[in-house]
Write a protein that binds this DNA or RNA. Sequence first.
DNA 1: ATAGGCCTGGAC
DNA 2: GTCCAGGCCTAT
Length: 244
Amino acid sequence: MVELRRHVVGRCITDLVIHHPALRRRIKPTQRRSVRGARIVGVRRRGKHQLIDLDDGRVLHAHFRMSGDWAVGDDAASARYPRATIHLDDDSIVVLDDPRALSSIVLVAAGEDAIAGLGPDADDAGVTAAWLRERFEKRRAPIKVVLLDQAVVSGIGNIYASESLWSSRIDPRRPASELTAVEVRALLKSIREVLARASGARYDGDGRFQVYDREGKKCRRCKGTIERFTQAGRSTYFCSKCQR
DNA sequence: ATAGGCCTGGAC
DNA sequence: GTCCAGGCCTAT
């Protein structure tokens, strides 16, 4: 994101080309044409949402889903899975690169909040253990499910929800409202560590997880065995021996 | 609350 | 070849 900002802020968009039919459905030809000539005044990120602010108040809003990323500078032309290309007035390009092609890109009208309802990032200074516990207290759902709710904290995906809970030794089935202050503090610390370690790594990166995708294997911390079950339609991995 | 759809690389 | 996973939305 920082890299993207460096390349695009201050530049004018000369064209927006959509390569993938799924994205073409989401952003119409008239909209694509309408961004030509717009100047990029800022770049923001929240969770996996990418916001490119235009000088007319509109926002080009991309969501990376699980495998999207920007390819900028020298990497742009060699993106393996180009889904959309932003052409700039210095003749450079920025490519939305996404093997799974689940990423989305939309143009948000001026004055609209592109990420309304989205919670703050886990590393936002406003996200303290006390603040988080307040949010949790209102939720009876299992803590794993609440961690996946982007309206609470943005950017925690299924893999990192399991990883964070393992790291803080908390049973994913526990109602969020029942976590103690000490547990919430430990969990927040784990979330930040896990996300920090993950940032920069791609989906197909080194991928050495502590619990995720390790069903039936030995817990790396105790003599337990990693179990898998489903919560809200998603796989949860945990060790019932050391996660309480 | 749960199921199905989007999309495709990688694991059977 | 078939199935699954990821994040998130829509439909039942």
